[in-house]
Simulated scan of single mutants.
Amino acid sequence: MAAIPTIEEEDARRPSRERESLVGEQTRLVNRIKAVLTRLGIRSFRLSLRSAADRLAAIRTAEGTPLPDNTCAELSRLLARLSLMRERIRTIEQERLRRLAAAPAAAASGLHAMVRLIARIIGIGFETADMLVHEALSRGLRDRRAVARYAGLTGSPDESGQRRREKGLARSGNARVRRGMIQLAWRFLSFQKDSDLAQWY
C-alpha cells in the first residue's frame, strides 16, 4: 500500500527538487553558450568567471574578427540567465544551511539531525544527505530490501523455461533516490578506499 506523504513532508522536498531543476537548466544554458562559441571557433572562454559577460566585447573568433552583433546580444542574454540560475541555486543552498544551523542539535529524532548525521560521513555532502533523508529515509520503509525496491535498485530477472538471465536494475522506483545512491556508491569507493566494504567490493 502506498503511503501518502503529509503536506509538510512534501513541502520539505521542494528545495531539493527545485535545486535539481535549476542545476539542469544551468547545464542546458552552459551547453548552449558553449555551442554558440564553438561554432565561431572559440574554445577558451571561461564561463565560470564573474566577469564573463564583461569580456564578451574582447572575444575574437577564429578568424580574428569580433563577435557578430546578434550573437553577442544572444550571449549577453544567456549569460544573464546563467547568472540568475547560479544566484537562485546559491540562495537555496544558503537557506538550507541556515535551517540546519537553526534546528536544535538536541532534537535527535528530527529530519535536520538526520541530515547533519549523514553529512558527517566522508564523501557525502549536504545536498545528497538532504535528498536521501527527505526522499527515502523519512518514509517508513520496512527494511533494506524495501529501500532498494523504492529506489529501483533491485534486479529484474528474466526466467523462461531453462533460460535464466539478469537484465540489470529494475529502474521502476524513485529516480532521484536511485541516481543519488549510485553516485553515493561511487563516492564511497573514491573517498573511502581503505574501508572494509570497499575492500570487499
Rank of each mutant, 00 (worst) to 15 (best):
I59E: 10
D69N: 12
I59V: 15
K167I: 01
A170T: 14
Y201L: 06
R39Y: 04
A175E: 13
D11L: 14
Q183H: 12
D196C: 05
R13H: 04
S51T: 15
S16N: 06
T154S: 09
Q199A: 05
A108N: 01
K167P: 03
A151H: 04
E95D: 15
V115P: 05
E63S: 13
S109V: 02
G110F: 01
L153M: 07
V115S: 03
I7L: 14
R90L: 10
G161F: 04
R32W: 04
I4W: 11
R32H: 14
A106F: 00
L75H: 06
R145S: 14
E166R: 08
V115C: 06
F191Y: 15
D196E: 15
T38K: 13
I118P: 05
S138M: 14
N70G: 06
G180R: 09
A136I: 09
Q183R: 11
P157Y: 01
M181N: 07
L56C: 07
L75V: 07
A136K: 08
G140F: 05
P66Q: 06
E166H: 13
T71Y: 07
A53G: 07
T38E: 12
I89E: 12
E135Y: 11
R99H: 11
E10V: 00
R144H: 15
S21M: 09
E9M: 07
T128V: 12
M114C: 04
I4Y: 12
Q162W: 01
I4F: 13
R60S: 04
A136F: 10
R116T: 06
L153D: 03
R116G: 11
